[in-house]
């Protein structure tokens, strides 16, 4: 059965067209129009997502020399080799630690700042604007900032840390390098999370907080029993976004700060894809890694929606 193409839109957005009363479903009189309207978005998705993704899948079953002169179909060999590589498993572990730490720290600090900003009465706007600025800093620049601050030989803050007697050297110490990139990555993401938490806090009716106060709940109790549960939709959304951020958007920071080192202590999956593909020119392995990465992220997001979202209460 062929039905007229229809698009769900918010009521009132379209005043022409057939508007069905008491429903938000708009039926377009022209069958072609909806496709034309969707075309730009679909084109962008196809060109910048599906095409490269299919290229990656295609390359992942090939073995190519760095110059692309000889290409050979090898089936799943690349996957076998990648998954059997201890360096790859190390990279997986690094990614997990990095992502969990970055997401948690970025979200926890953002929430703390948002709760505090919510209490500010004078200069609220200025305070919020200042909080949002770090988001406008490009990842590589953010990485450089942190590098300059904490580089053991020239960093101002590194100098202070070392003057306390602590042997700060992220160039040699893998754990310290991890701390540094987690800090830089979390610092950059705090602004974004802050913005959403502020909006989330504002959407909680004041009267709920007042009712809880009358009900004898102190400030801390109110936060954990009323505010935090009501922020759950925001928190869940940010969890997904931050995980994806930590996986994919932190390449610039890692590249600028540690370059995956020392050794392979901060080589995340994405960084390894880059390293193997574009530095070492092992194109087949690199492509296989991207495909695995894709599967991991799809799986991760599915788990988040399947299990974590159940705990989310949409008011």
């Amino acid at each position: 059965m062929v039905t007229a193409p229809s698009v769900i839109l918010r009521a009132g957005l379209f005043t022409n067209g057939t508007f069905m009363a008491s429903s938000t479903r708009v039926t377009f009189p022209n069958k072609l129009l909806p496709y034309v309207l969707l075309a730009p978005q679909l084109a962008i998705t196809a060109i910048f997502f599906y095409w490269p993704a299919s290229q990656a899948i295609y390359q992942s079953v090939l073995r190519e020399d760095p110059f692309g002169l000889s290409t050979q179909f090898v089936g799943l060999d690349n996957f076998r080799r990648v998954l059997g590589d201890p360096n790859y498993l190390n990279s997986l572990q690094v990614t997990l630690i990095f992502s969990v730490a970055t997401a948690l720290i970025a979200m926890a600090l953002a929430l703390l700042l948002a709760v505090m900003a919510d209490k500010v009465i004078r200069g609220k706007g200025i305070y919020r604007t200042l909080m949002i600025w770090p988001y406008a800093v490009a990842p590589a620049i953010a990485g450089m900032l942190w590098l300059f601050l904490f580089n053991p030989s020239m960093g101002t803050l590194a100098y202070l840390v070392r003057s306390t007697g602590y042997n700060w050297d992220p160039l040699l110490n893998g754990d310290q390098a991890m701390v540094l990139i987690v800090s830089a990555a979390a610092w950059k993401q705090i602004s974004y999370n802050f913005l959403f938490f502020v909006a989330g806090l504002q959407s909680i009716p004041k009267s709920l907080i007042e009712a809880a106060a009358i009900d004898g709940a102190g400030e801390t109790k109110r936060f954990w029993t009323i505010v935090f549960p009501l922020l759950a939709p925001t928190t869940f959304f940010l969890l997904v976004v931050n995980t994806v951020y930590a996986f994919f958007d932190t390449f610039g920071i890692i590249h600028a700060v540690t370059g995956g080192g020392p050794g392979k202590a901060t080589e995340t999956l994405v960084y390894k894809v880059y390293n193997d593909g574009f530095v070492n020119l092992i194109l087949g392995d690199s492509a296989a890694q991207s495909v695995i990465l894709m599967i991991i992220v799809i799986g991760l997001t599915a788990i988040q929606f399947r299990y974590v979202e159940r705990k989310v209460h949409y008011g």
Binding site: P205, S207, L208, E210, I214, D215, L230, H313, G315
Partner: peptide, 17 residues
């Protein structure tokens, strides 16, 4: 909380969760 009062709000202010 210390005044021993209870209040009914215009929007009821029920805890939605």
């Amino acid at each position: 909380a210390e005044r021993d009062i209870a209040m009914v709000f215009q929007n009821y202010a029920l805890y939605p969760h």
